[in-house]
Computed example of a mutant assay.
Amino acid sequence: MADSPTPGQCDCGAIAGPLGLCVDYYHGILAAEQADPQMYRWHAPVVCAYLLQHPSRAHEKYLDSQFRQLQLYVDKGLDALLRVAAHQVARNKHRAQSSYDMAPLAAYAPLPQGGSPGHFRATFCGLPFKDGSFVSDGHPAYGRRIEIIAEATVESWRSVQS
């Protein structure tokens, strides 16, 4: 398990950035997504990466599927992840008996047991926030930064020994 963070340090190991800890960046992103449909496209990888980097803020029973979704995103990209998400929404509208179809994620490794890695080479505290925006240099640049955070999250979780 990760050590307890010191003041000014996030539980993912990151040092607070200009907006504060990762939770402050996360809430800022979620608020900004509400006004920016292009930014919202990265909502699923943002949520999965944040919760996997901060599992104490997550529901443990969902972390495995979030890890698999993040692996799909890193492996096949945003459009593939959005297709899987749309499939899940369609299933829910038809009141499927099981709440989540794991078949699209079956090829991906389960969440390693043994606790959170506690350190990630890229975190939310490192996201630039300029001119009151996470996307001041464009949506593609923002998307690439989210992809880097996702890659770092998957990489660190894969390093956890079972």
Rank of each mutant, 00 (worst) to 15 (best):
C125K: 09
Q161T: 15
E155G: 03
R91L: 15
G8D: 12
D101G: 09
R57F: 15
K93D: 12
R83F: 10
D137V: 09
G138A: 13
A106G: 00
P140D: 10
Y100E: 14
K130S: 15
L30K: 10
T123Q: 07
H119L: 13
A90S: 12
G138M: 13
H54W: 09
R158K: 13
G118L: 03
S116F: 05
W42E: 01
A90D: 12
S65R: 15
D75F: 06
I148H: 00
N92C: 14
Q53N: 03
A16K: 11
M102I: 06
R121C: 06
N92L: 15
M1C: 12
G118V: 05
R95W: 04
S156D: 06
W42N: 00
P128S: 02
A16C: 14
V23L: 12
L51R: 04
A14P: 02
M102W: 07
L127R: 02
F120Q: 01
P104F: 04
R121T: 14
T123N: 08
D137M: 09
Q9I: 11
A96F: 05
R83N: 11
L78V: 07
R57D: 15
F124C: 01
F120W: 04
C12I: 04
A58Q: 07
A58R: 07
Q53D: 05
V46L: 06
Q9Y: 09
A32P: 00
G77D: 04
R68Q: 07
Y25Q: 09
W157Y: 10
H119W: 14
S56D: 15
D79L: 11
L82R: 05
S159H: 14
G115A: 06
H27L: 12
E147V: 04
P55I: 03
I15D: 08
A150N: 03
P37E: 04
L111W: 01
Y26W: 11
P37F: 01
C10T: 08
G115Y: 08
L30A: 07
G17P: 09
A2Y: 02
D24F: 08
C10P: 05
A35R: 08
I148S: 03
L127V: 02
S159Y: 12
L127S: 05
P112S: 13
D11C: 14
M1H: 13
V154N: 00
G28R: 05
A85R: 12
Y26M: 10
H87Q: 11
I29G: 00
P18M: 03
V23E: 14
G8Y: 11
K76V: 09
E147A: 13
K130H: 15
V154G: 00
N92P: 11
Y108I: 03
S136W: 06
E155W: 00
Q69T: 07
W157A: 03
P104A: 08
G138S: 13
Y142W: 02
D11W: 07
L52F: 03
L63N: 12
Y100I: 14
S159V: 13
L82M: 08
I148W: 02
Q69Y: 02
K93Q: 15
L72P: 02
P7S: 11
Y100A: 12
Y62W: 10
A32F: 01
Y62D: 06
S156Y: 00
A2D: 10
R68A: 05
H94V: 12
P140V: 05
G77Q: 01
M1W: 11
V47P: 00
G28E: 06
Y40A: 06
D24A: 13
L78I: 09
G115R: 08
S116V: 12
C12H: 04
